[in-house]
Every structure is written in C-alpha cells, then in structure tokens.
Amino acid sequence: MRKKSSLTLTDLLIGSFLLLVCLFFVYRIKVGLNYNWAWDSIPQFIFRFDKENNEWVSGILMTGFYTTIRLSFWGIILATVFGVISGIAKTSSILFLRWLATTYVETMRNLPPLVIIFIAYFFVGDQLLSPLGIDDWAETLSPASQNILSILFAKPGYLTSFFAALMTLAIFEGAYITEIVRAGIESIDKGQWEASHALGLTWYQQMRHIILPQTFQRIMPPMAGQFISLIKDSSIVSVISIQELCFQGIELMTSTLHTIEIWTVVTLMYLTLTLPCSLLVEKLETRLNLSLR
C-alpha cells in the first residue's frame, strides 16, 4: 500500500510542536546553560596539519572512526559466517548440532553484552590469541606489510586486542544472526525441499542451490537491521580499551570538557555509517514486496 505524502492538519500540528520543543532546547542552551563553546577546537580532532612532516594527518576522533569502520566491516563478515553456520545447525536433523547452536544462542542472548565482552575478551585474547604471538610476528614484517596490516586491522602491538574484540563482537552478534537465518530457512515452503529431494539433489546441493539463495533473499532486511546494531554495538568494546570512536570520544571529553561538541561530531560519524544501512533496508524491503507481490 502506498501512503499519502501530502501534509494534513495533524502533520502541521505535530510539526509545529516539534519546532517549539527545538526552540526551547536552543533557548535553554543559550540562556540556562553556562557552557563554554569551543567549536573552533574541534576540527583538529578530525584532521590536523602536522607541521613537522608537512602533511595532513587524521585527528583522534577520525582514527577512532577508522577503527569503528574496521571493527564493523570485519564484524559484519565474521558475524554473518558464524550466524549462517549456526543457523543451519539449528535447522539440522542432527540433535547434537541443534543443541550446540541453541546453547550458543541462548548464552549470548541471556547475558548482558558487557559480561560477554569481558569473559570473551579475556578468554579469547589471553588464552587463544596471545599464545599465537600475532603482535610479535607483525613487528618482524616489512614496513609495507605492517602498513597494510594497520590499514586493514590495527597497528602492530594492538593486533591481539583488536582481533579479540572483533571475535567477541562477531560471536555476540552472530547469535542474533543465527535466529534470523533459522527463521529464514524455516520460512521456505517445504515443497521446495520435496521437489529438490525428488530430483535427487543431496542435502548440500539442496542447501546451496535451492534453500539458502531463497533464504538470503528473504532475510536481507532483518540482516541489514542487525548490521546496524553491530555498528552501534561496536562501541561496547571501548570498555576493553579498543580505541574506537566512543573510546576516543570519552578520552577527549575528559581531557577537554567540550562535551557537546565532541558528542555532536561522534553522533554525526555514527550516522554516516548507520544511515546508509537504514536506507538500504528500506530499499530492500520495497524490492522484496515488489517481487513477492
């Protein structure tokens, strides 16, 4: 159904009410708030000119933004891999696999993310990743490869904690993706299984060619929604000192006290990541509605 896009009286009333609320806030900030505005000190936290090397370098908020992008990008990929595997396991006919996947999902969904972050970080980081000696190995690489590593992941010396945070985030979000994938697979008409079974396809061929392609088409919108959550949730790894956007924001705030300016910039930076995803969701939903008619 297409909604009318013309303004009605109700729209005007709601609009003017919102305008009044905004004016009130501006008034409060101007008059009531005894705040030292320092917008001019903000740009240096985004980009600044390095006089020694004579070049522009990213400021502290921008480097945090990069880390958030890296975490989100790899997080989305890894979480999707985890979610798809365990989502398939959840619909498996093998009881043990179903139990395993259910245990995973329920653990992740019934614990506060902070608790998971700390447990997983110390387990994954200290027990699994540290012994691998990734950082020591990275130090021995050529500057060029070190450069590539730091563009893709993190600087040598920070790699172990970055991967630990990444894994934690992916494991956590993967649990939610599991449920999306499971529901998607179960929503496929059982006639599709039967027809492909009758054609003599093996289970793997059924999944690969018949079930999963249709599932992915269907779960695009909720998946994109989950990716937005992942981008937002990436801020929780600030508690384990990953220097992503929120962490940098907090650091700057305590040292400069320019609270409003800093968080305005941080807000805008998050929005540049999440808004495109939201628009994508909307696009996908209309397309899905069209194709299902």
């Binding site: 027809a195 054609l199 392609p213």
Partner: peptide, 20 residues
Amino acid sequence: RLKIRREMGMVFQSFNLFPH
C-alpha cells in the same frame, strides 16, 4: 535411496518450481 530418487520423476499438486 539416492539412486532410486534419481530414477523417478515426481510432479506435485502445487508445482513447487524454484521461484528464484
């Protein structure tokens, strides 16, 4: 079982074509 399935064609009441 696989061999037998592959030698029998089945046509269903609800067609069950692959929509994608």
